[in-house]
Write a protein that binds this DNA or RNA. Sequence first.
DNA 1: TCCCTCCCTGTCCCAAAGTACAGGTTCCCG
DNA 2: CGGGAACCTGTACTTTGGGACAGGGAGGGA
Lengths: 218, 218
Amino acid sequence: MTPPPIHILLADDHLVVRAGLLALLSTQADFEVVGEAANGREAVEKVLDLQPDVLLLDLEMPEMDGVEVIQALKEEGVAARVIVFTVFDTDERVLAAVQAGAQGYLLKGAPRDELFRAVRVVYEGGSLLQPIVASKLMRQMQEQANPDRSDMVETLSTREQEVLGKLALGLQNKEIAAQLQITERTVKFHVSSILAKLGAGNRTEAVTIAAQRGIIDL
Amino acid sequence: MTPPPIHILLADDHLVVRAGLLALLSTQADFEVVGEAANGREAVEKVLDLQPDVLLLDLEMPEMDGVEVIQALKEEGVAARVIVFTVFDTDERVLAAVQAGAQGYLLKGAPRDELFRAVRVVYEGGSLLQPIVASKLMRQMQEQANPDRSDMVETLSTREQEVLGKLALGLQNKEIAAQLQITERTVKFHVSSILAKLGAGNRTEAVTIAAQRGIIDL
DNA sequence: TCCCTCCCTGTCCCAAAGTACAGGTTCCCG
DNA sequence: CGGGAACCTGTACTTTGGGACAGGGAGGGA
């Protein structure tokens, strides 16, 4: 007798990606794609409805992004295990997804076997990250554990992230101060902290670095 | 008797996307996928080798990007017609692709029928842009035709684009001047032009706007 | 040829950015 | 309760950024 297949739900806003995953996964006898979702909200609904074993989830989606989907599922107390499947490989995004509770992280373009293995491993309760992703994550973790390394990447406080967002819009300190109801002096303080933590020489470079690392979205 | 099928070559660096396109296109009796390429260089080689009727081309690829592929094919005098198939929908990228010689421009996530129709239309010598893409292109063209409109989006001169690139790196005027072998004063002049053309209030906003429009890549 | 665009340079000037130094609060964790 | 982290504020200072105004040379198209 054959074992029951692994039930998989696909969540991606691009038709071709869903079609591709369906085509690839269908070649495996122990996989069964039970449904598809084209946005985050739909993904959450279908997980609750269809109770898949594994959710293949894109991070960039309309309505609700991938990290939010994972968090929503957690609040619902859902058992499904999640593999993030995306084009992003920046430290921050990987960390956010894993912290939210993803068990796997694959980059689009991952080879067939890696995809198949990830589904099986995660289904069995394990975790699987692509080597490139794993190393990024490791580095992040180590840096958070040793806050006294010289080459560390410090995390921005929530306030600093707020200010950073305003910087990206091209606002000047005075305008930021008004919007955040604080003094211009305080804004300068935060900006200096941001520059130091990101290793930037000025606000423009800070925005570029933040965008590259996935800390902010332009 | 059935007519000969339309020969299609797929060029995308992501396995799933190629698999998805293959799966979707294979449902049509008059389509035949004759090959796949995972990067730009390979795409050019395979077009020359396999002589497809239509090339489905991603813009973002390693080795050689989509626009470069189109240009390379043009220099080789190849007859194949090109449909750009990408996630980017910024004005600049669309314009660049169409100017380089693409006959179609589809966004990933385009519905089945639109994809099929695009292949057939382009094969028969026509052009097809998704409505969203078409409107962006139209706007660009109109703005270039009327250089005296108030809401126009002016194009940056080559020198300005150079300076813009340096701005994104967070360099200051003095540093840019040194790198470009010009006076700091001249750099200021170019920066001012860039700000005016992009509608930015300062260099930081200019970088953000440029990144959003696809003028620069971070 | 004339005009227009791009590229380049200069001086003056003020506002904005960023640093240095010094200090305050609250809140949470061990 | 002590200590750290995040957040906030202040004065004083130097450097950078960007605008206003004015100009010159090279090259392409009507």
